[in-house]
Design a protein around this nucleic acid. Structure first.
Lengths: 310, 310
DNA sequence: ATAACTTGTGGAACGCGTTCCATGGCAAGA
DNA sequence: TCTTGCCATGGAACGCGTTCCACAAGTTAT
C-alpha cells in the first residue's frame, strides 16, 4: 500500500505539499502538482480512510439502532435515511438490538468511542434518561415521540391520527374493538400514543375493548385470530398483522371484522384493508439531517400521518 | 475526550502499560492495573475506535452492495449477513447503488481506501473483470453465480431448481408460458440461469412463451397484467409480482393463470401462490463468513434452493 | 528603495493506540 | 555464585494524513 510519504519521496517534495495538492488547499505550483499526480497514478495511491478518519476525528458514519431487521415499520424509515445519507458523504450502519439492552448500550458506547458521529433510534429498550446521558458524546435522534424533552426527535404525529381513527369509529357507534400492538404500553411510545388517543376520544363512554400485545407479524396475527372471534373492529400495528387475523377467520369460516392496519403495506393494499400511513420515509430523511447537524438547532420535528380508509 | 496519555499521566505510568492493562496483554502488576482502572473510570475514558482502526489497519467493517433498498430479494440476504456480523465484532454497512456504475466504483474505491475490510455484492452493474481487479484490495464476495471463476461467491443453486420447475411444467404439457424478470438476460445472472434451465429442459420442443423484463414490484406486475391475458403459466421474480398480475386479472374479470413466484414472500403464502425459496438468509450468512475470511480458502459455496408447490 | 504581499514548499507536531525492544529487579535452578 | 528466566514497566517508533508555522523567493505598492 502506497502512502503519502511514498508519493513525497518519489516526487522529491514533502508530505505537506502532496496533501495540499491532493486536497486542493493552499499553494502548489502547477508543475509540482503534475508530478505529484503522475506519481499518484503510477503507485496506485489512494489516501487511507482510516488515517483520514483519525485525523479529522470523525468516521462520517451514522448508526441506525433498530430492534429487528424484519419489522416492516423499519423498511421505509431506513430507506429515507439511506437516501439522505447517499446524497451526502456519510455512510449508514444498521445496528440491530433484538431488544437486548446490553447490545443497545454497546452501540451507545461506540458513539462515545467515535465509531459513529451520531445515532438514530427507531426504537429503544433503555430508559430515556440513559439515552440522554449519552448525548454528550454525539447527537442522538429518536424516531418516536419521547415524553422527555431532553432528546432530539423526528417522529410521526401519531396521536392526532389515532384520535381521528377513534373519532371515526365513535361516529359509527363502534363496539367490540380490539387493539393489537407489539409492545406493552409501558415500553412503547406507539402503544402509549394509541392509548392516549383512545382514552381522550372515548373518555368515559368506552366501548368493549380487547387489548392484545406481542403481535407484530402476519403469523402473530394468525395466531391471535382465535381470540378475536367476537371483535367487530380491529386495529393492528401493521397491515401484515391485519392480514393474519383476516386469514385465520376466513380459514375458520368466521366473520371478518372491520380491519385497520398501519404502515400502508402492500398486503393492506392487496386485501383492501384500511390503514394509517405514518410517512416513515420522510421521518427517516429528516432524522438523518438532524443527526448530522444539518437541521441547525432544531431538535423536534413532527411529520403528519394519514388515515387511509379503504 | 480523555486519551490514553491522560490516563498514563494521571496514574504515573507509561501509555504502553495502560494499553497492556486495558487489553489484558503482557505483564501488568495487579496494583498498577487497579490504579489504571480507577483513572479510566474517573476520566470516563474509552479508547478511540478511530485510533484503533488506524493502528490495526482495519475498520472491522463489511460493506454490502445492493441495488435498491426495497427489493424483497435483499431483505433475507441482509438479515443473514447481519445476524452473522452481529455474532462477531464486525459491523455492516449497506451500500445502495441504484444500478449506477459510478456509485459502484465508488464503493470499490472505498475498499481500496481500507474503509471496508471486504465487500459483498448482492447484485452488480459493473463487468466482472472490473470487480475481479479490485480483489487485490480486499475480499469481494458475489451472491450470484458468476460465470468467471475469478471471483469468490456464495449463491443459491437456482439453475437446478429452475430446471425442476420447468420439468414440472413440461410434465403437465404446459403451454403459453410467461417469464417475468427484472433485468434482461445480458445483465442478470438470475435471468441467465432461468433461460439456461428453460432451454435445457424444453430443448427444441419449446412451448409458446412470452418474455417480459423490467418487472420487479407488485405495481410492475399489475402494470403488465394486460399483456398476460393469454398466458396459462406465469413465472415471476418475486411473489409480489405474481400478486400484482393476479390482481390485475381479477380486477378485469379475466382468468388467472397458474402463478409461480419466487422468494417465498408473505404475499405468496397469503394468496396460495407456488414459489421458489432460495434460502437467501443462509446465503447471506455464508457470504459474511467468506468475506471475513472465516471460511478458509473456500471461494465457492452453493446453497440449494427449493420449489414449493401450493 | 523599502515595506508589504503573494506564492511555493518544508519541518514538525498532532490525532491516539499498539507494539517491539530494552532495561532492571528478583527468585529459582545449576 | 552465576546463569536463566519471569515479571513489570518505560521509551520510542509506527500507522497515515492533516495542518500550523516558518522561511525563502519573487512581486507589487508606496
Amino acid at each position: 500500500m502506497a502512502t503519502i510519504r511514498d508519493i513525497a519521496t518519489r516526487t522529491g517534495v514533502s508530505t505537506s505539499t502532496v496533501s495540499r495538492a491532493l486536497n486542493g488547499s493552499g499553494y502548489v505550483a502547477p508543475a509540482t502538482k503534475q508530478k505529484i499526480m503522475a506519481a499518484v497514478h503510477d503507485l496506485d495511491y489512494v489516501p487511507s480512510a482510516l488515517a483520514q478518519d483519525l485525523s479529522s476525528g470523525s468516521a462520517h458514519n451514522i448508526g441506525v439502532v433498530l430492534p429487528h431487521m424484519d419489522h416492516p415499520y423499519q423498511t421505509q424509515l431506513i430507506k429515507g435515511i439511506m437516501t439522505a445519507a447517499f446524497a451526502s458523504k456519510y455512510r449508514v450502519t444498521l445496528l440491530p438490538t433484538a431488544y437486548d439492552d446490553e447490545t443497545e448500550v454497546g452501540y451507545l458506547e461506540q458513539l462515545h468511542r467515535n465509531q459513529f458521529d451520531g445515532l438514530i433510534f427507531t426504537s429503544h429498550g433503555l430508559p430515556l434518561s440513559t439515552l440522554a446521558h449519552y448525548q454528550q458524546y454525539g447527537p442522538i435522534v429518536m424516531c418516536e415521540h419521547p415524553e422527555t424533552t431532553d432528546l432530539a426527535a423526528v417522529y410521526s404525529q401519531r396521536e392526532s391520527t389515532y384520535r381521528e381513527v377513534f373519532h371515526w369509529l365513535k361516529a359509527q357507534h363502534a363496539d367490540h374493538l380490539a387493539l393489537l400492538s407489539y409492545r406493552p404500553e409501558s415500553r412503547s411510545a406507539t402503544t402509549q400514543a394509541t392509548m392516549k388517543a383512545y382514552r381522550s376520544v372515548f373518555n368515559d363512554a368506552k366501548p368493549t375493548t380487547q387489548f392484545l400485545t406481542a403481535v407484530m407479524t402476519y403469523e402473530d396475527g394468525y395466531r391471535v385470530g382465535s381470540q378475536l372471534t367476537s371483535a367487530k373492529y380491529v386495529l393492528t400495528d401493521g397491515d401484515d398483522v391485519a392480514a393474519g387475523v383476516r386469514q385465520y377467520l376466513l380459514d375458520h369460516h368466521l366473520p371478518v371484522p372491520l380491519l385497520i392496519g398501519q404502515e400502508n403495506q402492500l398486503t393492506g393494499r392487496l386485501l383492501g384493508i384500511s390503514t394509517i400511513d405514518h410517512h416513515f420515509e420522510t421521518v427517516g430523511h429528516e432524522a438523518f439531517l438532524m443527526a448530522t447537524g444539518k437541521l441547525g438547532k432544531q431538535r423536534r420535528v413532527g411529520i403528519p400521518s394519514e388515515f387511509i380508509i379503504r
